[in-house]
Structure formats: structure tokens, C-alpha cells
Design a protein around this nucleic acid. Sequence first.
DNA 1: TTTTACTAACCCAAATCGGGTGATTAACGG
DNA 2: CCGTTAATCACCCGATTTGGGTTAGTAAAA
Lengths: 209, 209
Amino acid sequence: MNIYEKRVVIVEDNTELSNLYSFLINGIDNYSVIGKYKRCEDLIKNINHDRPDLILMDLELPGMSGTEGIRQVKKKYPRIEILVVTIHENDDVIFQSLSAGACGYLSKTAGLTEVERALKRIETGGAYMTSRIARKVVESFQKSYFSPLTKRETEILSLISKGKTYSMIAVDLNIASDTVKSHLKNIYSKLHVNSKADAISLALKEKFI
Amino acid sequence: MNIYEKRVVIVEDNTELSNLYSFLINGIDNYSVIGKYKRCEDLIKNINHDRPDLILMDLELPGMSGTEGIRQVKKKYPRIEILVVTIHENDDVIFQSLSAGACGYLSKTAGLTEVERALKRIETGGAYMTSRIARKVVESFQKSYFSPLTKRETEILSLISKGKTYSMIAVDLNIASDTVKSHLKNIYSKLHVNSKADAISLALKEKFI
DNA sequence: TTTTACTAACCCAAATCGGGTGATTAACGG
DNA sequence: CCGTTAATCACCCGATTTGGGTTAGTAAAA
């Protein structure tokens, strides 16, 4: 193993899968598996010794959750790349692991070609995910096309969600603060709520803002 | 052209590029370019007649901005897919167009293979983007690894950003509202701000929450 | 053992918020 | 041409929230 080789650590509680990934990755040019663990705790315990460049991480693990593991690793070693392997395409899990610091999402059924492609993409500063996952990620940005709120109301609620007061918003939008209040009353009425907090959480849930 | 063919409309002010895309797309199985426009306004004017399944949209256009065009099209016709073509890999523009409703991002230098791959991905319910763009999108989810805020402070500021009052947060976290206030004071001090609004906007900008 | 994180209490004055009522203007659609 | 919606603004009221100050106990981590 030369010093330019990428050091890979696998965290996977299923021995067969772990061996399969190990076999696949060792077969790829310039990549070497230098550690295999069944738990995040063990990964973290040995991470200073292993000094991995990339971690292949299963999310369904006993003990510490995969996302918590990602968070802890990235907090201490931001430059280590983490590729998640999972059977789930559950939205919450995806966003949690991405926001925790993963830079890719691999299906457990991935073969050599896909693993190789993922590694190369990550190596060149990209992110890897299937186009189905990419679609989910993209959709998470998209606003609802059926908001009951007008443009101005959306604008104002959005500013409210940034913690601004009526008078601050009035200054921002060059209108009277009574006008802001008036919009808020309409917003509350349309959303059937009667407080900032309820309006914001409903609007966020329904992607009105 | 049979009825199963995907109807494509191109919005691109550069005639040469427009013709190139047209040529490429007409060469792909089951895709036909049925309209070419130089401005979003013209696209929208003829959209009822064209009934496109997919719009290839340049973002740098005279008149109405590309993102505004996407927004208007998706509001009236949510099922029309929109693939953005651009020279910019500017973060703001990417997120604006994705949040406006685009489902893919194509470089202006894309050749036949890439265009074909993008169309197929979109057809099967996926999203298409280069892995560099994907990386930017993924990074937009990630929190800062160097937040000055503690776990509790982050939690509280995040609830503040959802419009909750001290007393609501106190109930949520099972602590006294004076404790919430106490955390807020520490947050303000750490972030060198003295209001909710400033704390939230700084924390959002720096991805502390 | 010193620091940090989290917890909590008390005081105070200013600002904010939610609700009510009512009004004007412009624009869009049938 | 008339009704509706969107956006604007005003004034009243009382309760709540907020930001700032100060102090302090406990537990965990460095």
C-alpha cells in the first residue's frame, strides 16, 4: 500500500456485507480497506490510529445511531468523507445523514460499478446518490404550488420566521407596521392559527415558506 | 410523432445553442422538440397550445428571469418537468431554481450523452445534476462543525427560529422560562448580537442551526 | 481543580403581539 | 360593470414578551 492510497474504513454490522464491500473496494485502484467495525463506538475509538480518508457507513447499527456517528466524526475530522450505505430510502433518514455530514448515499444492492463510481465522484469533490434520492433532495427545496398565502403574505411570514418584529418588517418592506399586522391577521385566518409559532410550523410543514 | 412521445419546449435566447439542443433532443428516442422560444413570456403565452411534458430552460434570459418563469409554470402546471441549462454554477441561482421547481441542472457544455442521460433520469422520476452540483446541494444541508453554541443553545435558538416564545420553549424542554432566557443571554453574548432576529440570521448564515 | 454547561430566580421598563373594527385603492375576472 | 381579492393604513386595548442586569447551585468535563 503506497502513501497515496485512500484509506477506507467500513462500519457495518453484517459480516457478509462488510466482507463484500471490503472485497469490492480493495479491487478498486488506489483504495484500501484498512479497518472494519460493527459499531460506531469502535470506529471512533480507533479513528486516530486508522486515519481514514473515507468511511463507508451503514445506518442501521446497534448502539450509537449512524447519524450520530457521522456527526461526531465530522465534528472532529471534517475532512473525512462519509458514504452512507442503507436499505432505507426514508426521507428523514436521508436528510438527517446528509445534514450530519454524509456526502453520498449508496444502496445495499450496489455492485462494483456503482461503488467505484461513487468513490470516484467523491474523490473529485462531488457527491454521490441515485437519481431517485437526488429527486427527493431536490424536492425538499421546492415550495408548495398550492399555498393559500399571497406573495406578500408569504414574504412577511418568511421574515417573521427569521425572528423579525412587525416594526422591523415594516422597515424592510417600506410599509407601516400596522400593515404588517394586518397581513399577519389574514395569514392567521387563512391558516387557522393564532400565533407566530403555529403559523410558522404549519407553513414550514406545508412548504408555504 | 406518436402520442407517447415526450413533448419538449426549449427556452433559450441564443439561436445556435437552441438549435443544437433541438438537434440533440430530436435525435433521442421518444423525444420531440415542439417549440422554441427566446423569452419566458413567449413560453407562457403558448404553453396551453404546446402542452409540453418537459421544458429545457436557460436561466440567463432577457425579460422575465428564468426562476420566475419556472415558478409561474410550475404553479399552473406542476407536472411539467423543468430542466435548467446554465453556464453558472452559482449557489444562489442553483437553489433558487431548484426551489422554484426545476428537477435538474445541465451544463451548457453538455453533449448528447449527457442530455440523453438527463432526460432518461427525469423520465424515471429522478433528478439530474452533475456531482459537483449535487455536492453543493448536499453541503447546503450540512451544519457548521465549528459552532460556538452548545447543544442546548442550538436547540433553543432553533426553537426561537420556529417562532416559539420563551414560555413555549420552557414547556417543550421541561425547564423554567427563566432558564430559556438565560440560555438566550448566553447565545446573544456568544454571537455578539442583542435580538432574536440578529441571532437567527447570523446562525442561519453560519449554519449553526 | 478550574471551567463549562445547564439550571433557576428576581427586578424592571420598553416593546411586541393578538384581537377588534373599519377604510381606501388598484387590479383582475366574470 | 360589479364583486372579489390583494395590499395598504389607522386606532384602541390589554396581556405577554423581551432584553438587560445580577446572582447562584450542580454536575460534568478538561
